[in-house]
Nucleic acid binder design. Sequence first.
DNA 1: GTCTATATGTAGATAGAC
DNA 2: GTCTATCTACATATAGAC
Lengths: 191, 191
Amino acid sequence: MGKKGDTNRQKIVEAADRLFYRRGYNQTSFQDISDETGIPRGNFYYYFKTKDEILDAVIESRLNELVSWLEHCDTVTDDPREKLLLFTDILNNNEQDILQQGCPIGTLSSELAKDSTFLQEKSGQAFILFRDWAKAQFDALGIADSVSLAMDLLARMQGVTVLACAFKDQSFIRRSHQELRDWIVSKTMTG
Amino acid sequence: MGKKGDTNRQKIVEAADRLFYRRGYNQTSFQDISDETGIPRGNFYYYFKTKDEILDAVIESRLNELVSWLEHCDTVTDDPREKLLLFTDILNNNEQDILQQGCPIGTLSSELAKDSTFLQEKSGQAFILFRDWAKAQFDALGIADSVSLAMDLLARMQGVTVLACAFKDQSFIRRSHQELRDWIVSKTMTG
DNA sequence: GTCTATATGTAGATAGAC
DNA sequence: GTCTATCTACATATAGAC
């Protein structure tokens, strides 16, 4: 693949990523992506055979970003508890996006649950990455039921985003963020 | 309105209700509703001017059902704690639907967050009804921070449905159901 | 009130010139 | 590799016969 080709492909994926989050997958048309990138619709088919393939590339890209983020967390601190707290900070760091569109992983998964089974499973990989990473932190602290705790943490985060977005309630995000931090501290108390 | 007219209108709303839940609002076509009801597409416009009006009627219908359900709960028991526990039982009573499509309120709200602002707000009325009802139960028990507790309860329920649906994990629903019951009992302990 | 035929727009996808 | 023109299918919506 040449450099220019990669750039155009990248531009399509990046625009699609944003649009799929803001408007949903089904509600985003090729025209929308074309308008955003300036690349004509017909050109998309040089890189992707179908719209699903664009989504596939978007999911792949999100998974890569997620892996990078998790790796980054591992360099910031060695304390597993601190790592878990960093995870909850996602709520604060993405407050506006969450209020307007919800969680990119959760909303995509919910949307795909209604039509595609294969791509829903693939988008769910992001949840699996988060869960296993969180589980690893609980394990590192020698805490029992680490998988359950990891699932509970993910579920709480999801619940907060869904409600915050439905109510457009910023203060609910902030309060919940603090409560999740307290919850993590209480669960990781070793003594 | 004549009887026959009401019946057809009702049939449209009921079919749309089911289809909007199973396939999403945007992914459901007039043809789908026509196939399900046997009523020709063109007839829809006798009752509804636009597709949005059908959605509006569906939301209205869901709100009415919800009010009936809340009123029903109030007749089952006088104990506010028991009422809150009945609320969590929704998870058990709708296990299969939740695993496959998630929460009808939550997924619709998330979907509408991406295109309609007005109808999202309207669909959010269901959350408000649940919240205020739950708040009333905490109030009746003389518990402080009743609004926050009600929001937390709703958020937890949502989080469980999103994760359970993403992972297709039945046991997670059941475990979470029990944990939510324990949480309610602990929060409503008076003494 | 009901239903058919059709208008009108736009979706995803293709063919082929450059 | 890039872009234009176009195809086919299907969406919502309308007009008007019955």
